[in-house]
Simulated assay, not measured.
Amino acid sequence: MNTTKIGWIGLGNMGIPMAGQLVNADYKVTVYNRSKDKEASLKEMGASVAGTPKDLISEIDVLVLMVSDDAAIEQIFNSEDGLFSADISGKVIINMSTVSPAISKEMAALCRDKGAQYLDAPVSGSVKQAETAQLVVMVGGDETAFGQVKPILEKMGKMAVRLGDVGSGNGAKLAINSLLALYTQGLAETVLFANQQGIKTEDLLNLLNNGAIANVFTKIKGDAIIAGNYKPAFALKHIVKDLNLAKAIGLDSPLAKTALNTFEAASFKYGEEDLIAVIKEVKG
């Protein structure tokens, strides 16, 4: 068994398979989640369960966070039984959530004051990549701390790359998710335009998936469109959050503005569905 003791906070669609990769790699993993029912599958795999973030950080060497937004990070660190209510000296905290560079810089500074290291390490990939350990991990923070935890990150992904100081991982993820939004809306519009020309969705996707711009995303989301399956691998409401975070740090291009307007409109009806449900908003 690997001797590094790992804590995990955040067991959503991504967090469960990612934490599971570490359990399967023979790390001793302890988990915490606000919705306690989501801890059950990891417990069955052999993980331990902690009652609070404070309890968790006291038992481990490296902590991974995979939660929804900046507000959740604030709660985990600063609540009455949060991380900062414990002695965190010597710990490495890896925030793999898609959050703002600002929250990472703020928490990294506070962690340094308390003798701990903080890395922002969001991922590119969705549930399928998490289940097969094919995520791409982009990291900001101290180079020595990154070297210490890189073997852990590589259990969850096919590549882990340090890009620079704290916040650079978050910046890269927001750039990638901005392209994701543009591509998703573009795919939706292309399918609908082809349908207007009498071209079946299946035939169009067959051409796309065998042409010069073929990619995994088109295959997965094309299959979802054909099946009418909008079960969220990545909920539409989260791309709205990410586009707004990108806007806050300077994204102001014509396509990005259009995508944000479209996804915000779609989120009122389809926010809990997969982001490809934007096709229903575009169709009108």
Rank of each mutant, 00 (worst) to 15 (best):
M1Y: 00
M1G: 10
N2C: 00
N2H: 03
T3C: 06
T3Q: 10
T4R: 02
I6G: 07
G7C: 05
W8S: 03
G10C: 02
G10T: 01
N13Q: 11
I16P: 01
P17W: 04
P17I: 02
M18G: 11
G20R: 02
Q21V: 00
L22A: 07
A25W: 02
Y32V: 08
D37H: 13
D37P: 03
K38E: 10
K43H: 13
M45C: 10
A47I: 00
A50P: 04
A50S: 13
T52S: 08
P53Q: 06
P53T: 03
K54G: 14
K54W: 09
D55T: 06
D55R: 05
I57H: 03
S58H: 11
E59V: 03
E59W: 00
V62P: 00
V62F: 00
V62T: 04
L65K: 05
L65P: 05
M66W: 00
M66S: 12
D69M: 08
D70G: 08
A72I: 01
Q75R: 07
Q75G: 01
I76H: 01
I76G: 01
L83E: 02
L83H: 01
L83T: 00
S85M: 03
S85N: 04
I88S: 05
N95K: 07
N95S: 14
T98N: 15
T98C: 13
S100V: 04
S100M: 03
P101A: 14
S104H: 12
A109Q: 14
L110V: 09
C111M: 03
R112V: 13
K114S: 09
A116I: 02
Q117W: 04
Y118K: 06
D120W: 04
G125W: 08
K128I: 15
K128F: 11
Q129W: 07
Q129C: 10
A130C: 12
T132M: 08
V136D: 14
V139Q: 08
E143L: 14
P151T: 10
M156V: 08
K158Q: 14
R162M: 11
R162P: 05
L163P: 07
L163Q: 08
V166F: 03
G169W: 00
L174P: 11
A175P: 02
N177Y: 06
N177L: 05
A181W: 00
Q185S: 13
Q185F: 02
G186M: 10
A188P: 10
L192E: 07
F193E: 12
A194W: 08
Q197A: 12
Q197S: 08
Q197P: 02
N206M: 05
N210D: 12
A212S: 15
T218G: 04
K219I: 09
K219V: 13
G222M: 09
A224L: 12
Y230E: 12
K237G: 06
K241C: 11
K241R: 14
L243P: 04
L245P: 13
A246K: 00
A246D: 07
A246C: 06
A248Q: 11
I249F: 05
L255S: 07
A256H: 12
A256S: 15
A266Y: 06
S267P: 00
S267G: 09
K269D: 15
K269Q: 14
G271C: 12
D274L: 13
L275Q: 09
L275K: 06
I276T: 11
I276V: 13
V278L: 06
E281I: 01
E281M: 05
V282Y: 09
G284H: 04
G284L: 06
G284Q: 09
G284R: 09
